[in-house]
């Protein structure tokens, strides 16, 4: 019994071998080229960290988003597509400087980040709060009230807390350096254990027994 022509055609031309692998490799070259030659507006890549795999996204201006491991990459990218641009590609090479600085930071060899940041996901009030926050030096802390006051809203410590909780670039914009006035940890978008970990790494908090 001979195979029908339709079935033979569906098997593909004889010069096709590992179609899935070849298409994947060709697609990766598209993504890297799109990022390198500026056709893409946003590049993202997974980044290893002591917290697990983070995802970092950068625009032509700079780092725009850092997502914790439990955030859904799909919804993070969807939101970037809607708010900034759908021209988003996975291009690890574009994130190399970010990876390097985060590695150095987590290894205790870097105290300040030099990579440029893109603030376009941050609203006007959030920008004031996070600018103040980004000035807190490694090893230092401020209270929510102090940050709100510095940001020009002395009675806005709750709003400042919300702006810090919505920080799209955690770790790099060090919202973990903002605590409650009494010294209690307060909140953290990535979970309090991570806030404690970062403060211990920076020496602001003595490791618990």
């Amino acid at each position: 019994m001979t195979q029908k022509i339709e079935q033979l055609l569906r098997r593909g031309a004889p010069n096709m071998q590992d179609i899935g692998g070849e298409a994947g490799a060709a697609a990766r070259r598209v993504s890297e080229r799109a990022a390198a030659e500026g056709f893409a507006d946003i590049s993202y890549a997974p980044v290893d960290s002591p917290f697990g795999t983070l995802h970092a996204a950068t625009t032509k201006r700079g780092l725009v988003r850092v997502a914790f491991p439990e955030e859904s990459v799909e919804s993070v990218l969807e939101r970037l597509a809607q708010r900034l641009s759908p021209r988003i590609v996975e291009a690890p090479a574009s994130l190399d400087p970010v990876k390097r600085e985060l590695d150095e930071y987590f290894a205790g060899r870097r105290r300040a980040f030099d990579i440029p940041l893109d603030w376009s996901l941050i609203g006007p009030f959030g920008a004031r709060v996070l600018h103040v926050t980004s000035e807190i030096p490694y090893g230092g802390v401020l209270s929510y009230t102090e940050v709100a006051t510095e940001a020009g809203s002395p009675r806005g410590s709750r709003a400042a807390g919300n702006a810090l909780g919505a920080n799209p670039i955690p770790i790099v914009i060090p919202c973990h350096r903002v605590l409650r006035s009494g010294g209690a940890l307060g909140g953290y978008g990535g979970g309090l254990n991570r806030k404690r970990f970062l403060l211990e790494l920076e020496g602001s908090l003595t490791p618990r027994q």
Binding site: G12, M16, I19, G20, E22, A23, G24, A26, A27, V30, S31, A34, A40, Y44, L77, E78, L80, A81, Q82, P86, R87, I88, V89, E90
Partner: peptide, 18 residues
Amino acid sequence: GPPPFQYFLDAHREAVWR
């Protein structure tokens, strides 16, 4: 708008390559 471009690329790369 359309989905992130990377998803579009991943979804259709095989059909286009074949």
